[in-house]
């Protein structure tokens, strides 16, 4: 397998709330290899965004973060703000759901790209940087890039703004691009365009992409590998084909089964709702909603282990195959 660019080990994030400590991320392990498209899927509150905000050092000071995040051999947890500034936008950048709030409304988009370029390579002349900004707008598929570079964010449509945000994020050829629900605010025809731009960037520059989403369709379309998160933990990971073909964890199985597909009369929801993270259950976070749960599931927190060609955090995975067959 290709070079490891981002490696997260036993990452934990706790927020102090008026109601007590809230453990949003509870021991996440995750590897991203050069040039791959890794999907991170989970429902609201599963900790998928917080994991990567912590990796970027973007959480507020009040958040308690422990564990290790190695980016290209450099530890990010506890790194000085100077190191973090260098890494962010240099080796690793992030794009968010809402492109409008990610752009500064009073600066021309070209200048916002130039700012990113100059922040990381001080010896670039203004002229070179401006030319490079236009090139980047062209790469992300903005027509008449040279003229558009002089326009302000409000003159762009939602899809075009997200392209500008991507141009800023890839300005310094980062090794890792983290895309947090990049298409959730967009219409589906525009979503298809943005996913295509992200794939193009990944292939052209060999950038590893972490795509955070709740949409399993998006994962199936673009991801190479998938990480499924639930209640602040990874519950299953593997290649996109294996995971959709024979998911091992009851949560992944439940998610896939709850989607509408052709020829079924009734959908199969997952009963119950996610645990309150102020009082997470002592054992497997999914046990309260799982019809296969046994006492051992409720007793202690299961860790990821190899199972078939996947990694699963279900202690009953073998039993599940016997009972219900693969997939």
């Amino acid at each position: 397998m290709s070079e490891l660019v981002l490696s997260i080990r036993d990452l934990r994030v706790t927020f102090n709330t008026p109601l007590g400590p809230l453990e949003a991320v509870r021991g996440v392990d995750l590897d991203v290899h050069a040039g791959e498209m890794m999907g991170v899927v989970g429902e609201s509150g599963s900790g998928k965004s917080v994991t990567f905000l912590a990796a970027m050092g973007l959480l507020p000071h009040q958040a308690k973060v422990s564990g290790s995040v190695m980016l290209n051999g450099q530890e990010m947890i506890g790194a000085s703000s100077k190191v973090l500034r260098n890494m962010r936008g240099g080796l690793m950048s992030m794009i968010f759901q809402d492109p409008l709030s990610a752009l500064n409304p009073v600066h021309r988009v070209g200048d916002q790209i130039v700012e990113m370029l100059k922040a990381h390579s001080g010896n670039l002349s203004d002229k070179q940087a401006a030319l490079r900004a236009v090139e980047l707008l062209d790469v992300v598929g903005i027509p008449q890039a040279a003229e558009r570079a002089h326009q302000y964010p409000h003159e762009f449509s939602g899809g075009m703004r997200q392209r500008v945000v991507i141009a800023i994020a890839i300005a310094n050829h980062p090794k890792v691009l983290i895309a947090d629900e990049p298409t959730t605010a967009l219409d589906v025809t525009v979503q298809a365009q943005i996913l295509e731009v992200i794939e193009r960037v990944q292939k052209a520059f060999g950038t590893a992409v972490v795509l955070i989403t709740h949409d399993l369709g998006v994962i199936a379309r673009v991801a190479d590998r998938v990480n499924v998160m639930y209640a602040g933990r990874n519950v299953e990971k593997g290649s996109v084909d294996s995971l959709f073909d024979h998911p091992s964890h009851p949560y992944t199985r439940g998610l896939l089964a709850s989607l509408p597909h052709e020829g079924i009369e009734r959908l199969t929801p997952i009963t119950g709702f996610p645990p309150n993270m102020l009082m997470p259950p002592p054992g497997c976070g999914f046990a309260p909603r799982c019809s296969h749960a046994i006492d051992a599931c409720r007793a202690s927190l299961p860790s990821l282990r190899a199972f078939a060609d996947l990694e699963t955090a279900c202690i009953c995975a073998e039993e599940l195959v016997v009972r219900t067959g693969l997939s």
Binding site: M160, T189, A192, Q193, I219, A220, R221, L256, L259, H261
Partner: peptide, 27 residues
Amino acid sequence: KALLSAVPIPNPTTERSRSRIMLEGDV
């Protein structure tokens, strides 16, 4: 046709074999 083609289907095998109509621009 374009709208149906733009919606991702949660099945990687189907997704790979599907021909896709990519619409230009926004509404």
